[in-house]
Amino acid sequence: MNSTVAEPIVAARGIHKHFGHLHVLKGVDLEVAERELVFVIGPSGSGKSTLLRCLNRLEEPSAGNITVAGIDMLDPRTDINHARQHIGMVFQSFNLYPHMTALGNVMLALRKVAGKSRTEAEKLAQAALERVGLADRADHRPAELSGGQQQRVAIARAIALEPRVMLFDEPTSALDPELVGSVLAVMRSLRESGMTMIVVSHEMGFARAAADRVVFMDHGLIVEQGPPAQIFESPAHERTRAFIGQIRQH
């Protein structure tokens, strides 16, 4: 692993997040190198999704520093909308715009944020749909697509903006088991193209095969991290061991 050598593309330091009285993140440090795929696991309520949502400031951290691709995300002078087009995000519930076609979903930010012309946006959107294997579904509305197809359109919507980093928030949790594979296949091909990815997910098989590093979070802190083999086979902490044991049973 060369993540210590190169300047990290994502650097979050001392991240705290409070929701009212709830202290959800208690000082998390996370660095991600370019082209690295980091897998974040942990029990529900451990703060992993919140951490992900802090990275593109969908949640406002209560304290800490975040730099993504050299941009200070928490600086009030930062144009957050401009910064966000370089950080793709994929949601558990897809969140496709139901009133637009698949192509329209992908084109919207290309037109409004990246300022592309209609024809260029259409070309880029079509290419993005091609990458997720849905070129022939461009004119379909979300309601006419399967869950797996919807999630692939959502991935196309993010990658069309040519992000430097992709955030995946439990991308397969809402899918029927037989549809998970198609989404993971797209994620794998993204990985092979060299995309930097941070993935919150319970897909252990995928983590084992594709992740460079697995991060285990519990109670708002990173408990331990390391290569997948190490975390899954010989975790150092009791809590990690218990969690891995639990998900193995399923």
Binding site: A83, R84, G88, F91, N95, L96, Y97, P98, K112, L161
Partner: peptide
Amino acid sequence: ISRGQWEAARSTGLSFGQTLFNVILPQ
């Protein structure tokens, strides 16, 4: 309109106003 619609649009860099007029209001 669900929060997820706002979040998805904002995550692609659309501003508050752009999200309101292009994503939320039409629905």
